[in-house]
Design a protein around this nucleic acid. Structure first.
Lengths: 293, 293
DNA sequence: TCTATCTGATAACTCATAGTTATTAATTAT
DNA sequence: ATAATTAATAACTATGAGTTATCAGATAGA
């Protein structure tokens, strides 16, 4: 008579909400269409709300259905997270940490931090994931990531931030460019050059920081945005496509014939930060934070 | 052969984790003990981790079990939340907002904000809940509350804060006390009096703010902490138990023979703030925030 | 207009498994 | 010893998820 909502209902709902077609959804779920119909109706009765609008020749989500879809997406991603963590803990590990990082941090601090973490807490499993700045922010908010190493100085809403390191920016120019560290005076010397920069969609925070370098010397550069990795930028500079501004530490680890000019006299510096979600209950979070402060 | 994890498993697990006794837990679930035994074992197989340690005469949670208990608690509170919201949306409402507030805010801004919210968005259902400051913070983090009206100026980790209003503090003294607004010079005049203040456990932020008033005039008061409402404090003052420091607006709405002396010359002011969890997806949140900025 | 085809809902079946009762084995308390 | 606990095991029952077959309504094409 009075059933209970089960994960089965929510799984079926979730697939139907994507397919919006009972037969196709049933197929994807490896069950028959009448079975799906019945489970969905049950769910609607249990929630006391209509989830799908069934037209004569179409199926649509109602407002309630749209809301539930968003919620079940989150619910299932949490269940996945629970599964992963439980598996680890069951194997005697303390936790699994999912760490994201931007490419430009891979050479510098990350290896050191991971080494120390593993030595102090060998019972914490770490998985690494190279991701753009803003992608890490959304992943952290969706609980798809436990930590993010990003280049920004302000904590986005809902996340906590800790400064890891700071370094000057550097100009990247072709190896045989007339300007070098000795005769460099101002960015104005590059008025006629193209600047290859990371696009705003990569990280708005980082973008605005770099743009403020130009506005500080009252100079509007010709900009060519690229959302690619350091190596590609160096290659573009080498080929004479323009000059770039990157964090100075990027010069380590690459062997490309380009010249780096450190911008020591400007106020802007590139800050590498650690981001995490303070709402997360992952026991590994405390362990890593402890190492970095 | 290969089952699926269902909410049934998690519900049973959750109750057993509380009872730590198969027969008692089964009783609470209105099922038989062997049925529970089997479902729990299935869950352990499905997760690939031992959840309970069965001794000869006791049942204990393993590390994995402790972790899962914390997670399922959250999961079920989210399911409750989904149920409530869906019910509302199904009835044509847009959302349900659960608002917490401290007693001292009930007279001032809250009625106004709620009136404007209801006029602009009649499709949002509001439920109100008077709660101490810190209780609101934990409720917000646990997704038991959508908004909190609190007296503090810094956002706790994981929450966003918006300033609503600011007002001076006021001294509350008995009606026939020798000190009044005219001859009041400094808090030092109350060196021999008892101060009735909210305890630190009520809100650490508020507590430190009030204590900084004393440290600013290099004076360590005799303090008597109370975690009660304004009316009780006024009653205590009236009866000569001591003097109090409260936000000035509290004088409105009460009819107790006590005298208020506004502390306009000190730097500390009491700030009423709106707190919310930026991770929440409640569509009503945007609507209320829009009204307050 | 008559088919052919596609949609989801309905009805009646079957079968997997949640939950049952009865019992065991091992402990502790009296 | 005996009684009273505990959880696990075995064998049974019955509920309801999932099945097949079919219907009813809509659309599109000939």
């Amino acid at each position: 008579m009075s059933y209970q909502i089960e994960l089965r209902h929510l799984t079926y709902f979730n697939v139907l909400a994507e397919e919006l077609h009972f037969r196709k959804a049933a197929e994807r779920l490896f069950i028959s269409q009448p079975g799906l119909t019945r489970q969905i109706r049950q769910l609607e009765i249990l929630f006391g709300a209509l989830l799908f609008e069934r037209g004569k020749r179409f199926v649509r989500l109602t407002d309630a259905g749209r809301f539930l879809k968003a919620e079940t997406d989150i619910l299932f991603s949490q269940l996945d997270y629970i599964r992963v963590q439980l598996k680890k803990i069951g194997e005697g590990k303390r936790a699994a940490l999912r760490i994201g990082f931007i490419g430009s941090a891979a050479q510098t601090v990350i290896p050191d931090i991971l080494y120390r973490l593993n030595r102090k807490h060998p019972d914490i499993d770490v998985s690494l994931n190279e991701l753009p700045n803003d992608a890490q922010v959304t992943a952290l908010l969706d609980n798809k990531l436990d930590f993010g190493f990003v280049r920004q100085q302000q904590a986005p809403a809902g996340l906590s931030l800790q400064k890891i390191s700071e370094e000057p920016f550097a100009l990247v120019v072709p190896a045989k460019h007339p300007v070098h560290a000795k005769n460099f005076r101002s960015l104005r010397q590059f008025e006629k050059e193209n600047f290859i920069l990371f696009g705003r969609d990569y990280s708005n925070d980082y973008y605005q920081l770099v743009m403020s370098i130009f506005s500080d010397c009252n100079f509007i550069p010709r900009v060519h945005h690229q959302t690619v990795n350091a190596l590609t930028i160096f290659k573009l500079v080498e080929k004479g496509m323009g000059v770039a501004i990157v964090p100075a530490s990027l010069k380590k680890g690459y062997d490309i014939p380009v010249r780096f000019i450190e911008l020591n006299r400007i106020r802007q510096r590139s800050q590498l930060s650690l981001l995490w979600n303070p709402a997360s209950r992952n026991p590994g979070i405390e362990a890593l934070l402890e190492l970095t402060r």
